[in-house]
Amino acid sequence: MTVLGTDEATADRGAPVAGAGAGAPKRRRFEFLYFALRNKKLIIGLSVVLLFVLFAIFGPLFVQHPLTAYGPPRHTPSGTYYFGTDYFGLDVFTQFVYGLRESLFVGLIGGCGATVIGMTLGFISGYKGGLIDEGLNVLCNVELTIPGLVLLILIAGFLHHTSPLIEGLLIACTTWTWSMRAIRAQTFSLVSRDFVGLARLSGEKSRSIIVREIAPNMSSYLFLVFILLFGGSILVAASFDFLGLGPAGGMSLGIMMMNAADWSALPLHTWWWFVPPGAAITCVVGGLYLANVGLDEVFNPKLREL
């Protein structure tokens, strides 16, 4: 396919031609793996994220005290209570396991949702151009100017009960703008390439051109966008839950921090109420950001030498 040929021509400009050439698709995939396995940032970032994801999945196996089993109140971390107990004697480690699950779930919904919305609007905008583009672009700018968390608070103020799914979707509705801007610009540059023009000339429908010609060429880029939005959603959800606007009756890392603040963790010096959830968020989101930088270096040959 011409696609990879042109891609390579632009990507390799300036770099010495170390046997670039025949069998482009296979080469590229091999090259990607080659650099991916040698990129420390990517390996470290992904390992940290994976560790937490695995922990969220299999964590309940290690839980020794059910969510509602009361033990000694405000117990310091110990062999029986890994992360201590809360104000009323509930196991913080148990809360942490379930909270991590929900926080990752909300982040995932938020990240996926925002990527899908931004992708759809960005593709349409960049591909159609003209008035549609102008309209969507204005919409994006408007949404971009309204602070997301403030809008979420306004919505939550009227909508009293949310579920993790709705929370994730609401977050997606306020964060998609980033991905749309980026994908719109990328689509613009791809649309001007030969192969899209060819597909257009041969009478392919817009939707199938976007799905079959444009999206695959941006898959690496889309993945980068998704990673950033995933991390961003986890952070937004933490703030949202901390303000007490999250799902009622659930448990999340943000809710754990809210409880810590509400039950005077500061004067009581019960640091184990808020240190684990916050540290987990920083690790996961930091890991995602690090993996993003690493992947960027892998995908973008210009950055590899740095």
Binding site: S239, F242, A261, H269, W271, F274, A279, I281, V285, G286
Partner: peptide
């Protein structure tokens, strides 16, 4: 830098309050 941007506001706030104000 990456750690700071990856930190949730409520956590940093609690952490600073605990360390510098509450006697940590």
């Amino acid at each position: 830098g990456y750690l700071l941007t990856a930190t949730a506001y409520p956590w940093l706030a609690l952490l600073l309050a605990f360390l510098l104000a509450a006697g940590g």
